[in-house]
């Protein structure tokens, strides 16, 4: 089950040429168990378009997307309840704070579950669980969402999607606009959720440090096609990085420089700063 892209192409109508191919020939499988995928690519490579197919917000022009057994094709199928798909695949857009609209945080988080026909009591329970899941306490529930700080708003809006309890979670650049500490807090949150619930999580990001540090699987997009699907280590050890206009994580870059400059036998593939420092110390002890 899960999500399967079968030779998917999506064209947007445009003025200059007849249509613009945002993604083409996409073949991709996403399971429901334990996946933790980073979706990366240069600007305009089609990441957001790909993400929008995952919860049937948009349909493929060619090919089909199979989501939990439902075959999504370019024509609308009366037998498929597209809204139900959004209950199983939760999509969080960039700057989700802008979707807040209710009088209290609790009501806003309850919006999702109640749209999917949960009763008010059930929705309240789900809201309570969700607010804890994002690291905030119950006192937030009765507050006005517009009186929260930017970071708190972000968490509340993510809670809004978590309360729906989707099996697959897709997030489009959730850490954009945050400082390094904010980024880490949020990414630790997602790792936490992933470990606690075992849900599959797909995150679109530009941040190579995050990719290296947190993810098991990386899908790279270039000009609308998938150019790599594998582990971050495989990715950074190959030449694909340059071909795809991507950057290396800072740890690798710094260690590479030190390795070349001082001619040391360093293993440059360290995921976080602390490990990099340990590696440098280890090598220095030999010298």
């Amino acid at each position: 089950m899960g999500i399967r892209f079968k030779n998917v192409t999506h064209e947007y109508p445009s003025y200059s040429k007849k249509t613009y191919k945002a993604i083409q020939g996409i073949n991709l499988n996403i399971g429901t168990d334990d996946e933790y995928i980073a979706l990366i690519g240069h600007t305009g490579s089609g990441k957001s378009t790909l993400a929008k197919h995952m919860n049937a917000l948009i349909f493929p022009t060619l090919g089909e997307v199979e989501i939990f057994g439902n075959n999504i094709k370019s024509k609308r199928d009366k037998n498929i309840n597209y809204n139900n798909i959004r209950k199983r695949v939760g999509l969080v857009f960039q700057f989700p704070e802008y979707q807040l609209f209710e009088e209290t945080v609790e009501k806003d988080i309850m919006f999702g579950p109640m749209n999917f026909k949960k009763s008010e009591e059930e929705a309240k329970k789900l809201a309570l669980e969700a607010i804890h899941l994002v690291g905030l306490d119950e006192t937030y529930l009765k507050r006005n969402p517009f009186n929260l700080s930017g970071g708190e708003k972000k968490r509340v809006s993510i809670a809004g999607i978590l309360a729906i309890d989707p099996e697959i979670l897709v997030l489009d650049e959730p850490t954009s606009g945050l400082d390094p500490e904010g980024k880490q807090t949020l990414m630790d949150l997602f790792s936490d959720i992933h470990k606690k619930t075992g849900k599959s999580i797909i995150i679109i990001t530009h941040d190579m440090d995050l990719v290296y540090r947190y993810f098991k699987r990386v899908v790279v997009m270039k000009d609308g096609r998938i150019s790599f699907d594998g582990t971050p280590d495989e990715l950074f050890k190959s030449d694909i990085i340059e071909e795809n206009h991507l950057d290396l994580p800072n740890t690798i870059k710094v260690l590479s420089y030190i390795k070349d400059k001082f001619n040391l036998d360093i293993n440059i593939y360290q995921k976080i700063a602390e490990e990099a420092v340990q590696e440098i110390n280890r090598v220095m002890e030999y010298e």
Binding site: L91, V92, Y98, I161
Partner: peptide, 23 residues
């Protein structure tokens, strides 16, 4: 963008009773 975000939370802008549509 907002319609897409709310649709992802289950707001189906085409169906539903009047009260749901208002929300």
């Amino acid at each position: 963008k907002i319609m897409a975000a709310q649709a992802s939370r289950g707001a189906d802008f085409s169906e539903g009773k009047l009260k749901d549509k208002m929300k």
